[in-house]
């Protein structure tokens, strides 16, 4: 039986790697069943599951929260997203990133930094004193 190689990867991990007789996925325009020697195809995936049917007829199911499906005659690559992605969710994340930078600019001399510097100064002074004392004692 001819098989097709399947790679399911996300940006954070390799999820599946192996041979299959058929791959079933939910593309943006509808359900896709991919068998060996399928024509090259590329599509976005809807959140849903990707089924991999192995040579023995076993069916493995993977849940994806969206992504990209690329089909070459011998290889199927599924590039999955690691989280549910939607335009407004992304927009909210962008706003957060901007706000964080603005906040950081607003309090240039925040209390944390001052106390950090003070602690360092105190430490350095204590060390200098200890050294001074040592030196004096050595002279006698």
């Amino acid at each position: 039986m001819t098989t097709i190689r399947v790679d399911i990867v996300s940006a954070e991990a390799e999820i599946f790697h192996g041979d299959a007789t058929m791959v079933i996925a939910t593309g943006e325009l509808g359900e896709l069943g991919i068998t060996p020697r399928h024509a090259p195809l590329i599509t976005r995936l809807k959140p849903g599951h990707v089924d991999v049917v192995s040579v023995t007829g076993e069916r493995q199911q993977f849940y994806v929260s969206g992504g990209i499906l690329e089909v070459q005659p011998q290889v199927v690559t599924v590039l999955t997203d690691t989280a549910i992605r939607a335009a407004d969710l992304d927009e909210a994340a962008a706003q957060r990133a901007k706000k964080e930078a603005e906040d950081a600019l607003a309090n240039r001399t925040d209390a944390l930094e001052v106390s950090e510097a003070q602690a360092k100064l105190a430490q350095a002074m204590a060390q200098l004193q200890a050294l001074e004392r040592l030196r004096k004692n050595l002279k006698h």
Binding site: E12, A83, K98
Partner: peptide, 15 residues
């Protein structure tokens, strides 16, 4: 680190 944590800053730049 998760990719999701980076979406915001990247979108700022891409936009």
């Amino acid at each position: 680190p998760k990719l999701e944590q980076l979406i915001g800053v990247i979108k700022v730049v891409l936009d």
